[in-house]
Amino acid sequence: MIVLKDVSKIYTMGDTQLRALDHANMHIRQGEFVSIIGPSGSGKSTLMNIVGCLDLADEGEYYLDGIEIRKYSEDRLAEVRSKKIGFIFQNFNLIGRMSAWDNVELPLIYQRVPAQQRKERVEEALRRVQLYERRRHRPNELSGGQQQRVAIARAIAAQPSIFLADEPTGNLDSRTGEEIMGIFHEMHAAGGTIVLITHDSGVAAQAQRQIAIRDGHVQEV
């Protein structure tokens, strides 16, 4: 499903070159629940941006569902993100002006899903995270845990190939974090492919498989 071959990402700051990713190799199969663990500055976010098609690798090859990603134009990348990747961010990244329902519906609009089908999928996703009753609330009227659940519902509704979660519990207290992890386990049980990026070994340990990243190097734990 996800294959990285010798992927490097190089940032140039003045005279110094920083290899945020250094010949990284990774293989994630469909239905897996994988955590990527590493301290801050290890290249986690760079890896996530490349896997999530938000950024392109400078060297190496990246295959998502068997298609090489680096040849794509920006609009095509947006389409790939829209159909294949469900992001879950540390700071939720919901749109503040819009209700929970509208936030969840947004990716479906970009996928051009017909209105009736959209309605069904949004409702189902909100029910799965138990926030259907709060669908008219805006993000600032919800707690942190609830906001993250809306963000998860947004990812679920889009029916992506993989869920890409970047420190999903980082801004939450430990009890709420457990709840969120519970939802991830449910999603995995329902057949979802999950890539979870974290610096918390306790969270990482809940995955089927752990991949460690340090100074741009990737290795199986």
Binding site: L54, D75, A78, S82, N93, I95, P107, Y110, Q111, A158
Partner: peptide
Amino acid sequence: TREIGIRKAIGAGRKV
């Protein structure tokens, strides 16, 4: 800017 970033991350293209 942030909203635009979110929209793009969840699949909005340039044209949209």
